[in-house]
């Protein structure tokens, strides 16, 4: 028995040690690693009816990945432009949502992190409450607002600012607002946590030295808050790229989100391997993108989730 395990059982006792180890192994291997591997494996197989699974036709193939790039075999186009466009649009939009959220949330996080007083606690509750409300209902709420006869259109047409209702949904404004809305808290909290631990004196010192407020942020606060910022950005990016509810509810009829394609493959086309392949592509691309960004901004993996 390796000395680490021996020490582990010494410290926790046999019974407790086995319970802890069992739960951890079940979680990490049974729920995290094996299902992902299984999905990866599945994405390389053809779509077969259940009796044929494991049969002679069940061989590894790249066809599911080819489909994303070249479209159906013998299709009219050289490339699967529809799906590819959805894919890139999803990524770009997720980046935009992330940036929008960062710009929106940084001032609030800074304000909350640096102010004292009991109103901060009330603000914190006001921040958390929306997050406790169902994701679907939050999207629904935005739909009431952005709908053609929704609050905004009624307001603006009523005020005579524009005369025909503006279609927020078809123009994806509702979708972006909804995605931004959904993940505000995930952006604020990591940044807030870091900024809260920033010594006020550092800011005072910089101010004493005559630095203008934007330079204080640029040179003192932002470098300090970098782990929180990257943590928040990573989460918002991953979650908005992987969002399903908001695009389904707030997306216009023509503007699909990549997750919706995956959903269609599973539920409408009943082509699980194809859906799995799309899911793998989404996961791998997002991870690579995040890793690349972390490289670019020199952030450690260990900072995420703090």
């Amino acid at each position: 028995m390796p000395s680490f395990l021996k020490e582990f059982f010494n410290r926790n006792g046999t019974g407790m040690g086995l319970t802890i180890l069992g739960l951890v192994l079940f979680w990490t291997i049974g729920l995290i690693i094996l299902p992902q591997l299984s999905m990866l494996d599945f994405s390389f197989r053809p779509n077969l009816p259940p009796p044929e699974i494991g049969g002679p036709k069940d061989v590894y193939t790249l066809e599911n990945y080819k489909y994303l790039i070249y479209g159906p075999e013998g299709g009219s186009q050289d490339y699967n432009t529809v799906d590819l466009r959805v894919f890139f649009r999803t990524l770009v939009a997720a980046v935009c949502v992330t940036i929008f959220n960062l710009i929106l949330c940084y001032p609030i996080a800074y304000y909350l992190g640096q102010s004292k007083g009991s109103h901060i606690r009330i603000f914190a509750i006001m921040l958390i409450i929306p997050y406790w409300i169902n994701e679907i209902l939050r999207a629904f709420a935005l739909r009431i607002i952005f709908g053609e006869t929704g609050v905004l259109n009624t307001l603006f047409t009523g005020l005579g600012i524009w005369d025909t209702p503006f279609d927020f949904i078809r123009n994806d404004i509702a979708l972006y607002a909804g995605l931004g809305y959904a993940y505000i808290l995930l952006m604020i909290f990591p940044i807030y946590n870091v900024i809260e631990s920033l010594d006020r004196n550092q800011i005072e010192a910089a101010r004493d030295l005559g630095a203008p407020w934007w330079r204080i942020h640029w040179r003192v606060v932002i470098p300090y808050a970098k782990p929180g910022i990257s943590s928040g950005c990573t989460m918002v990016f991953m979650l908005s790229a992987g969002a399903l509810a908001a695009p389904q509810i707030l997306g216009g009829p023509s503007s699909l989100w990549f997750t919706q394609l995956i959903y269609q493959q599973f539920n409408d086309n009943n082509d699980w391997p194809q859906g799995a392949a799309y899911a793998v592509v989404l996961l791998v691309t997002c991870i690579l993108f995040v890793l690349a960004m972390m490289r670019l901004f020199k952030v450690n993996m260990g900072d995420i989730g703090k």
Partner: peptide, 27 residues
């Protein structure tokens, strides 16, 4: 990294992998 990863993995992917994996175990 392993135990924090599920927070970052899109929920859709988790759903699919759970479905696929347990379907296979079941078979």
């Amino acid at each position: 990294t392993i135990i924090i990863a599920p927070i970052l993995i899109p929920g859709v992917v988790l759903g699919i992998s759970t479905l696929v994996f347990w379907d296979r175990i079941n078979r």
